[in-house]
């Protein structure tokens, strides 16, 4: 699989797909997309990188252990739910603030944090499975 063309294209493809996955994640609330789909796209991106350069390179590229990423995601999602509790409303109630940065209004919410958590868990969880399998496979 590790042809020259593939290895040349793979980093760009991965970078583009990762960027796209973040885009899909963030636009998810109003357009098709969201944390789950975004996470899956990101995993596919990582898989391409892994197939081209090997799992060791992929592990170096993402710095953290995939399950650490998943763990961070799970904590983020849980925190998003707990923030509501601290604000005196039932667990997981969405809270929104809309601060403006230099004239641009950016809606921020616990729901977004939650979705980012989902995104990270999917990357970490599925990524870990793929990497562990790929580590010793010869695909």
């Amino acid at each position: 699989m590790s042809t020259l063309i593939f290895r040349t294209v793979a980093p760009f493809l991965t970078a583009l797909m990762l960027l796209f996955s973040v885009f899909v994640l963030l636009r998810g609330h109003n357009e098709p997309g969201g944390g789950f789909i975004g996470g899956l796209i990101a995993v596919s991106a990582l898989a391409i990188y892994g197939i081209a350069f090997g799992v060791a390179a992929m592990r170096r590229a993402i710095v953290l252990h995939p399950l650490t990423i998943a763990g961070i995601g799970l904590v983020a999602s849980t925190l998003a739910g707990l923030v509501s509790l601290a604000a005196g409303v039932p667990f997981m109630t969405g809270l929104w603030i809309e601060p403006s940065f230099a004239g641009v209004t950016v809606p921020l919410s616990t729901v977004t944090l939650f979705d980012i958590g989902v995104y990270l868990v999917v990357i970490g969880g599925i990524g870990s499975i793929a990497m562990t399998l790929e580590e010793e496979g010869d695909l």
Binding site: G28, H29, G34, F36, G94, S109, V111
Partner: peptide
């Protein structure tokens, strides 16, 4: 605050 019903159901 979301137009994408599927995503709103999932995350909210």
């Amino acid at each position: 605050h979301g137009a994408n019903i599927v995503n709103v159901i999932i995350v909210d």
